[in-house]
């Protein structure tokens, strides 16, 4: 009898792990549209499931900086956080993340292996893609490849790239004729890096401004300050809606996966897992989310609920995915110090 009671109590507690009304889960993530949609889709679902309230903190580009400071001071303010593709290896190396307890998160093993990392679950995928202003193209011509992006004779006009070496070196090598599959073999050698920088040298005079935030890249395209620029695929829909004649060139884009993780010393470790579940494993919510932002994740059964038209705007839509390379974050984590210093000084030259 006693055991039964205990069992019942335990199951009640499991079903409603956190009932207290004054409990607040603090989540850090991107601002802008991402924040807007998260607040509409995921946060209410989490609140409904747990009875907790939530606080979503928009931390633009330096989330790692914040978390590192919080870990150092022993004062972690976030329970869960977005960990971008490029931040993940570094965050892991510096021990800024708690391991994910998959027994707690995914007891029935529904997530594919690809989605599960030791310190984070894939929450979204996105691409860094070149975008062209169709109305600025020469009559009857359209960019098809990175070679076209580099071809300032055939496609005159100012261009922009992100102010960082990551993926730009890959893009330069693709423009120089390297095949998608050989990209990181070439880049892994000193000559490969030199080759990429030589190729970037060609384009440098035609880049009046290097963008530093996604918002800026979109603004530059929208104002016509540049005709061609890389940007994140999720930004392009809004741009098109506002009447700007732009198109993504999926060929040679960089595909990234980002994660949701739990920072070291998070005050509510278990509740954070519930948030991770809501964020990564609910196809109904995810379908709603990708209606607004084409950053799909591995929520089981997601693509079943989607029209083909919608699926085509997704970076993981097979026709798009085949044209892209998967950004190798391990490579960048290992080589970034060396290459970045060179890139930063190259920019100033």
């Amino acid at each position: 009898m006693n055991k039964l009671l205990l069992g019942a109590a335990a199951s009640v507690m499991l079903a409603q792990p956190v009932l207290a009304q004054d409990k607040v889960l603090t989540i850090a993530g991107s601002g802008g549209v991402v924040k807007e949609i998260s607040e509409r889709v995921f946060l209410p679902a989490f609140e409904e499931a747990t009875g907790w309230s939530t606080k979503f903190v928009a931390a633009e580009s330096n989330i790692l900086l914040e978390v590192r400071t919080m870990v150092a001071s022993g004062q972690m303010l976030y329970d869960a956080m977005e960990v971008s593709a490029s931040a993940y290896p570094q965050a892991v190396r510096e021990g800024l993340l708690e391991p994910i307890d998959y027994k707690l998160l995914d007891p029935n093993n529904e997530l594919p292996d690809k989605a599960k990392k030791e310190f984070g679950v894939v929450a979204a995928s996105y691409s860094t893609v070149p975008v062209q202003r169709l109305d600025k193209n020469p009559e009857g011509r359209k960019m098809e490849s990175w070679s076209d992006f580099w071809d300032v004779e055939a496609f005159p006009g100012p261009r922009s790239l992100k102010q960082q070496p990551e993926y730009n070196l890959e893009f330069a090598l693709l423009a120089d004729g390297v095949a998608l599959d050989d990209l990181y073999d070439v880049l892994g050698t000193e000559e490969g890096v030199d080759r990429a920088f030589d190729k970037l040298d060609e384009l440098k005079p035609h880049i009046p401004v290097w963008w530093t935030s996604g918002a800026q890249s979109v603004q530059l395209l929208s104002d016509g300050e540049v005709f061609y620029s890389t940007t994140y695929n999720g930004r392009v829909g809004k741009l098109q809606e506002s009447g700007i004649d732009v198109e993504i060139m999926w060929n040679g884009g960089a595909l990234h996966t980002s994660h949701v993780g739990i920072p070291k010393g998070a005050p509510n470790y278990e509740a954070a897992h519930e948030w991770v579940r809501v964020r990564t494993m609910r196809p109904d919510l995810e379908a709603e989310y990708v209606k607004h932002l084409p950053y799909p994740n591995f929520a089981p059964g997601l693509f079943d609920a989607m029209t083909e038209e919608q699926a085509k705007t997704m970076p993981t839509y097979p026709a798009n995915a085949d044209l892209q390379f998967v950004a190798n974050e391990e490579f960048w984590a290992d080589n970034i110090e060396r290459i970045r210093e060179r890139f930063d000084e190259w920019l100033l030259e």
Binding site: S61, N62, L64, L65, R68, R340, D344
Partner: peptide, 8 residues
């Protein structure tokens, strides 16, 4: 300076 702080 800002750039280097961003770069940690």
């Amino acid at each position: 300076i800002e750039f280097q702080v961003q770069r940690l």
